[in-house]
Design a protein around this nucleic acid. Structure first.
Length: 592
RNA sequence: GGUCUCGUAGUACAAUGGAUAGUACGCAGGUCUCCGGAACCUGAUAUCCCAGUUCGAUUCUGGGCGAGACUACCA
């Protein structure tokens, strides 16, 4: 139990014992005391004043006295200002906490609970390379998985690859028409970019053909339907569904190029999956669901043969679940996949990291799954995140403003390299060490930038600002870590059983209090499914340490006891920074 | 039209209904006989509007105004 919870519980007991007042713990407000007042934690009294018909001063004093007398190991003083009871926690309490936890790299994390959670994220299309939006998705998915793991969950990271459909056929047809047998190898192009280039070529040719048809007198609408290259792609999709061997083998070949490219990117950004689903294997799922739904009368069949679900009672519309030609739509496949996931893994919670443009889709998905009584339906959770936009607005592939994932990673790493060279602090590093460091810093900066914002909010990616390494950034925190490690290389703290000192300076205490809150933060991030909570915390911790560090010397402390205390503070800060950044998927260097 | 999300300094982000609304970038000025200056300190600048609930509202409710997403027999 952490300190705030202890105080909450003690307050609850006090109210009960002193006044016979039973109040739920969640209704007892314990806040951090504002810095301008004396104290560490504050009990807000307003809500009890009315019930007890006492003045705030009287009530505060009574509770304060009682708390102090009943918890001599915890509190050393209190004061009452307006409706706020400010409680000061004993220095010895903080020092003991530090003694006990400073060397523990797992401080703040919980033991496994056995709860199974699936996290689905990334989910790329195989017709083009990853872009900035995918990076937000990947980083979020990875981080939320790590956060839940730190809270005891048994995690399966998964990904559904959209490997079939008209989009990949477009790349395929363009390759057949224009490539003359070129391959990623023959052109020295990364596989996903190679295939993406043909998707672009398809679109260019399509536009050209439409214009041509319009100039021959067709209406724009007709022309858009009649363009020969579109017809060819549609034919190819049909052939694919029939299993035509040469189409299948081309499809396999082009997808394998894309996967080679994706693998490089995934490896570089430090992501992987325990289980990958391919839509080519799952797109027929859901057929049985339709039959089942009709039987259960959850679905109804219309005269033309299409099947629908009526969600108007839930405030939504009617939704189609099977086309009149008997093929299933996306939502139906998704329900089939949800069912399959449950059969294979039995997750208690199934998280989908998907952009907020699909909020409606997931609302429908969960509703249908519940109505169909699909096992695990209640555990479906859409971790919705906002789009990444540029200062000029939304990224548009048609206007060529899409920020490519590989490009932005390269750019960040290159800038990290240049900056590191300028500072010249790691001149003795080997080539390999330097390369690794630049990756750590560049990718760390990018991840931090994308994770520091509440996921559900759309965010603006300003290239100039995101490459900044000062202020509220990953490298700032990484730097603090490296600096601490530099001290600890010179001298490490010595373990001692009894408390070293009983006097704490303001900045020393501030740092311990901050460290102690880490376990609450890890919990909060999981409950809210929100990594930004950790990003903000890590930044505040680093800042608190930096302030402490400029004010007080560790190595030249006033006494040996103080030196030990500060060494322990430093070590624990480094541990917690490394841990928090780890939960964001960000590495921290020993030197930089 | 309907459903949903969002409006906080010049910009980008914080704030379980609590004290004088925090932080970063930028801007102005400062700090080292320094354990790493990718640091630290000081300063100026903000809750879209109008009601309501409350001892107390950036937060909750209603109504405006503004921005965005969704509303496909696409995925």
């Amino acid at each position: 139990m952490n300190t705030a919870e202890r105080i909450r519980l003690a307050s609850k007991n006090t109210l009960e014992q002193l006044y016979g007042l039973t109040i739920e713990e969640k209704n007892i407000q314990i806040n951090e005391t504002k810095p301008e007042f004396e104290g560490d934690y504050t009990l807000v009294l307003f809500s009890f004043i009315k019930q007890l018909k006492k003045s705030p001063e009287q009530l505060g004093n009574e509770i304060g006295n009682y708390l102090l007398a009943g918890n001599p190991d915890l509190f050393s003083a209190y004061n009452v200002i307006k409706g706020f009871l400010n409680l000061t926690v004993k220095n010895s309490y903080w020092v003991e906490f530090l003694e006990k936890n400073y060397p523990d790299p797992n401080f703040g994390k919980k033991e496994p609970t056995g709860k199974k959670v699936m996290v689905e994220y990334s989910s790329p299309n195989t017709n083009k390379p990853l872009h900035l939006g995918h990076l937000r998705n990947n980083f979020l998915g990875w981080s939320i998985a790590e956060i839940l793991k730190a809270n005891g969950a048994d995690i399966t990271k998964t990904c559904i690859v959209n490997d079939r459909g008209i989009h990949i056929c477009k790349s395929m047809i363009a390759w057949q028409l224009f490539a003359n047998g070129e391959t990623p190898e023959s052109t020295g192009t990364k596989g996903d970019h190679f295939v993406g280039n043909y998707y672009v070529k398809y679109n260019d040719e399509y536009k050209r053909q439409v214009d041509e048809l319009v100039s021959k007198g067709l209406s724009k609408e007709e022309a858009e339907k009649e363009a020969p290259i579109l017809k060819a792609a549609q034919q190819m999709l049909f052939d694919w569904e029939q299993g035509k061997p040469d189409v299948i083998s081309l499809w396999k070949k082009m997808n394998s190029w894309v996967y080679e490219g994706f693998d490089i990117t995934y490896k570089r950004i430090g992501t992987h999956f325990d289980k990958i689903y391919y839509e080519s294997n799952t797109y027929l799922l859901g057929k049985n669901i339709v039959a089942e739904g009709l039987e259960k009368k959850v679905f109804t069949k219309k005269d033309d043969g299409s099947v629908w679900i009526d969600l108007t009672a839930d405030g939504l519309d009617e939704k189609i679940v099977m086309r009149r030609d008997g093929t299933s739509v996306y939502i139906t496949q998704d329900i089939g996949l949800a069912e399959q996931k449950h059969e294979e893994y039995h997750p208690g919670e199934s998280i989908y990291v998907v952009g907020d443009e699909q909020n409606y889709h997931f609302k429908v998905l969960k509703l249908i799954a519940e109505k169909m009584k699909i096992p695990g339906a209640e555990g479906i959770y859409h971790l919705s995140y906002g789009m990444v936009e540029l200062p000029t607005g939304r990224m548009k592939s048609r206007e060529g403003t899409v920020v490519d994932a590989d490009d932005i990673v390269d750019e960040m790493v290159a800038i990290a390299g240049r900056h590191t060279e300028e500072l010249g602090k790691v001149k003795d590093f080997t080539e390999t060490e330097l390369k690794e460091l630049y990756d750590t810093l560049g990718i760390g900066a990018l991840k931090f930038f994308l994770l520091r914002v509440d996921p559900k909010k759309k965010m603006i990616f300003n290239p100039e600002e995101s490459i900044d390494f000062h202020g509220f950034t990953g490298p700032f925190i990484q730097y603090t870590h490296a600096r601490i490690k530099s001290i600890l290389r010179k001298e490490k703290a010595v373990d001692s059983q009894e408390s070293i000192v009983d006097s704490l300076l303001k900045l020393e205490k501030e740092l311990i209090v901050k460290l102690e809150q880490y376990s609450t933060i890890v919990e909060q991030a999981a409950i809210e499914h929100n990594p930004s909570v950790l990003a903000i915390y890590a930044f505040e911790l680093a800042k608190t340490f930096n302030t402490f560090y400029t004010e007080h010397s560790v190595m030249n402390a006033e006494s040996d006891e103080k030196k030990q205390l500060r060494l322990k503070l430093s070590e624990m800060t480094a541990n917690v920074i490394a841990s928090a950044m780890g939960l964001l998927g960000i590495k921290v260097p020993e030197r930089m």
